[in-house]
């Protein structure tokens, strides 16, 4: 494993498998009465959240705590600039306090890269602007592998506001790395320029894509994109790109329906679709803790075998 996790591209295909395998052994911890192993006892993990994200923060917090690490939550809304203390000064403070790992969520793309200049510990990107969200991609890969048993040759569509989605970037690169085929689907205004150079297919017609899928991954579409004129109305967006009951019927049997949350029910996904058995949205959340445990463990801990065997 690399020292930092800034982009999913920092993780080789081999390491992805390692992360997922390790997560699998950690997932059992979550089912115990005492959900804790001593693997990172005495290590300090800081959750540095410049953007509100209760789900991701709690997931990281639980992951670190289940590994017995000391966890500090440093949350602040808005940019460091508006807050008055620079990212650099915050970083130096955390460094002085001896943070072994800093999990950063920030509204500015690239902030985790900037952070690495000032801290000695590992930096984990928990979502930076419209860039990447690599731990989300890894938990999605975990969920896909668990349900479908493989990546090679799988056909996945990522549907919606790809342009502004850090989840879409990380997941696209991750799936491609593991040998899956990826099609980005959405209105042309929400597909990143030159995205096909990533090695993905691009389609503006969801109905043409659905019948061939193994994974249908829906992205959250924010209503403010309408105000920014990316599409004319939320109603039209839902009609053209939303995953409705009728569209679910076009999916092959066994195709997973996924969503990184939080969902806009009725916009990108119909309310009852989200509750179908092939929708694995809650499992994604559950798996998030095990995958983040695995990452913290592999990045901060040592060899897998001895310490994992220590648990209980």
């Amino acid at each position: 494993m690399n020292k930092h996790l800034l982009s999913i591209n920092d993780v080789s295909a081999e390491d992805v498998v390692r992360v997922l395998d390790t997560a699998e052994s950690f997932r059992e911890v979550g089912t115990r009465v005492i959900k804790k192993v001593p693997a990172l006892r005495g290590r300090t993990v800081v959750n540095l959240f410049y953007e509100n994200s209760t789900r991701t923060r709690i997931s990281f917090e639980l992951a670190a705590k289940r590994l017995s690490a000391d966890v500090i939550n440093f949350s602040t809304s808005g940019s460091s600039v508006s807050k008055g203390e620079s990212l650099k000064d915050t970083a130096l403070t955390l460094q002085a306090m001896g943070a072994d790992a800093i999990v950063i969520r920030h509204s500015s793309s690239g902030s985790p890269y900037t952070l690495t200049k000032w801290v000695k510990g590992s930096v984990l990107n928990a979502g930076d602007g419209t860039h990447e969200h690599p731990t989300q991609a890894l938990l999605d890969l975990y969920t896909i592998r668990e349900k479908l048993g493989r990546f090679e040759g799988l056909r996945a569509a990522i549907v919606g506001d790809v342009l502004h989605s850090r989840v879409a970037r990380s997941l696209s690169f991750g799936l491609l790395k593991m040998g899956a085929e990826v099609t980005l689907v959405g209105p042309p205004t929400l597909i990143p320029p030159d995205a096909s150079a990533w090695g993905v297919q691009v389609s503006y017609d969801i109905d043409g894509v659905l019948p061939k899928l193994d994974v249908c991954y829906m992205l959250r579409v924010q209503r403010e994109r309408q105000r920014q004129q990316y599409f004319p109305s939320v109603r039209e967006y839902s009609r053209l790109f939303g995953l409705t009951r009728d569209r679910v019927a076009m999916l092959p049997e066994g195709c997973l329906i996924m969503h990184p949350g939080p969902m806009n029910r009725g916009v990108e996904i119909d309310s009852d679709v989200a509750d179908l058995p092939q929708a694995v949205i809650e499992e994604q959340v559950t798996n998030g803790i095990a995958v983040r445990m695995s990452l913290l463990y592999l990045m901060l801990g040592g060899a897998v075998t001895e310490e994992v065997s220590e648990r209980d």
Binding site: R166, R169, D194, W198
Partner: peptide, 18 residues
């Protein structure tokens, strides 16, 4: 815009100017 709009702005998640 934060940079030139193209493959790299797409990958970096930075708003681009064409």
């Amino acid at each position: 815009a934060q940079m030139h709009e193209g493959l790299h702005s797409s990958t970096l998640g930075l708003a681009g100017a064409p």
